[in-house]
């Protein structure tokens, strides 16, 4: 993979104030047939975004030009539950989002996002409500996500910090992936494999 990194982003955000958004909504199964990682963005939230005849649904946030430049997706609690399909993270990344903010993430989605340089930033329910309020008041409001300092800051100055484990933080900031590290352990793994044959 290309050497992508994530350090800091200031951008507008698309609001999706729905809870329990599952990976089947993020990318429905019938669009999982590609054998590459590219192109999934077109089908991100496919069934919420398009009618059965492929015309866009006017009231869906991604079809609203106001949010055309959004690089941050803000979603309700428990984002990404369900399937382990990494295609969900690929679709979000391919669409152009760099950060997903929610007050709770499903485990596998979180790993998949991190492995694709999409930052899942978990905030409190109260702060999430503040973000939705700020976007509601001004859809062009800028949000700053600072990975080094682990903070999210709104245009009105409100700020909250988020957790991320140091290992993944280092990977994101430097463009490392897990395989590089695991390959460096190859001799240890060989020994282990032999002992557990």
């Amino acid at each position: 993979m290309s050497k992508e990194t994530f350090t800091k982003l200031t951008a507008t955000a698309a609001p999706l104030p729905i809870e329990n958004i599952d990976t089947d909504q993020i990318i429905p199964a019938r669009f999982l047939k590609a054998t590459t990682r590219e192109g999934f963005g077109d089908n991100l939230f496919r069934d919420w975004r398009y009618n059965a005849d492929d015309t866009p649904k006017a009231d869906f946030v991604l079809n609203n030009l106001t949010y055309a430049d959004a690089r941050i997706l803000v979603a309700g609690k428990n984002f990404g539950m369900g399937s382990s399909r990494e295609h969900a993270a690929w679709a979000i990344h391919d669409y152009g989002f760099k950060v997903v903010i929610s007050s709770f993430f499903a485990d596998i989605f979180k790993n998949n996002a991190l492995n694709n340089f999409v930052l899942p930033a978990q905030v409190s329910d109260a702060f999430l409500a503040e973000i939705f309020k700020a976007i509601d008041a001004d859809p062009h409001t800028l949000i700053t996500v600072d990975l080094a300092n682990q903070t999210i800051t709104l245009a009105n100055g409100l700020s909250e910090s988020f957790d991320i484990n140091t290992y993944k933080k280092t990977c994101l900031m430097n463009g490392y992936d897990d395989i590089d590290y695991l390959l460096s352990l190859k001799e240890d793994i060989k020994q282990f494999d032999l002992a557990h044959a």
Partner: peptide
Amino acid sequence: GIGTSEVEQVLATQCILQYKP
């Protein structure tokens, strides 16, 4: 269950990197 990047890790090294739940 794991994502595809982790499938690659397993194919390449028979290991994955995980924090204990």
